[in-house]
Nucleic acid binder design. Structure first.
Lengths: 159, 159
DNA sequence: TATGGATTGTTGTAAATGTCAACGATTAAA
DNA sequence: TTTAATCGTTGACATTTACAACAATCCATA
């Protein structure tokens, strides 16, 4: 019932379970699309010794927003201790630096180095290509609509 | 930066990282909405001693499609060995029965019992309520649009 | 200005999940 | 009949997650 293409299990035309009512469950749909996208994403990022997690941290570190580790944990829905490990790795690789917060010296801001920023450029291209592949069944308009709806569901506002 | 309501970390108005470019990354958006929904979902299902996983298996077992364990693994993107544990649990609780496949006696179909079907009714109500809460920022139309787009991205077809 | 309470990053640990290889039983192919 | 492949299952191992404790620091208020 599945066709193996380049080591990836792809849904064949005859997925009989698609008829089940769980196909109306938003949680299930989100999990499934996220899962299939993650495979492609992580494969693309592996060339840069990154995973989705470290890639996300690197993006935020490069955003100019100077996030603290706590803010990263909240925003990425991760436990603060997981951020420690992620930043440790990126810092060892000189892609990111920790600096004590200006107002609060407990907090440590995470900022991308030049090397980190450069790696992010390359990795970003690969990630965007992987995303396009995961969404190849949707038109550009549909992708835009979906992102707008996801953003609204998460943070409200426009849309 | 987050407000704690009923034990749930909710995004406050001042989430400064929302300005970061990662907010345009589909994988990130899917992961985040799925994560916040999962918390609510699992909390609702806990009253029935179910988790998202076992709930999904129970739905498919109750679908009338008589899925085999292999089909469940493929459809849920899980390792076959994880299905074993999930079905073991549901079977012990008399919510589901295993039966040898009619054409292929290696395969085992998983079917919900009357008790399983009944529990699913109750759990389904709780899950739908949790889903509504996770999507409260969207209108009914927007939810429908989003589900249609997710289905199209996953399996193509209609739209 | 002190003192108590909360917060930040960090470490460690235990539980849950994911991944993978092997096995008997069964099916399909040669 | 032999051979190869598939299904469920078990078990071993790695990764991820969740949670509690801790020192350093901040904050509120007396």
């Amino acid at each position: 019932m599945t066709i193996d293409v380049q080591g990836v299990k792809q849904d064949g035309a005859g997925e009989k379970l698609v008829a089940a009512s769980i196909t109306n469950d938003m949680g299930f749909l989100l999990a499934k699309l996220h899962a299939s996208g993650s495979v492609l994403n992580n494969r693309a990022l592996a060339d840069f010794n990154l995973k989705e997690r470290s890639y996300s941290v690197l993006i935020l570190a490069d955003s100019g927003l100077e996030p603290t580790q706590r803010e990263l944990a909240d925003f990425l829905s991760l436990d603060p201790s997981q951020i420690v490990a992620l930043v440790d790795d990126l810092e060892k690789r000189k892609l990111v630096v920790r600096a004590p917060g200006k107002q609060d010296r407990r907090a440590k801001t995470v900022t991308a180095t030049k090397a980190g920023s450069k790696l992010l450029d390359e990795a970003g291209k690969a990630a965007r290509s992987a995303e396009a592949q995961a969404l190849e069944r949707l038109s550009a308009d549909e992708v835009a609509t979906m992102k707008a709806l996801l953003r609204k569901a998460l943070w409200g506002g426009l849309a």
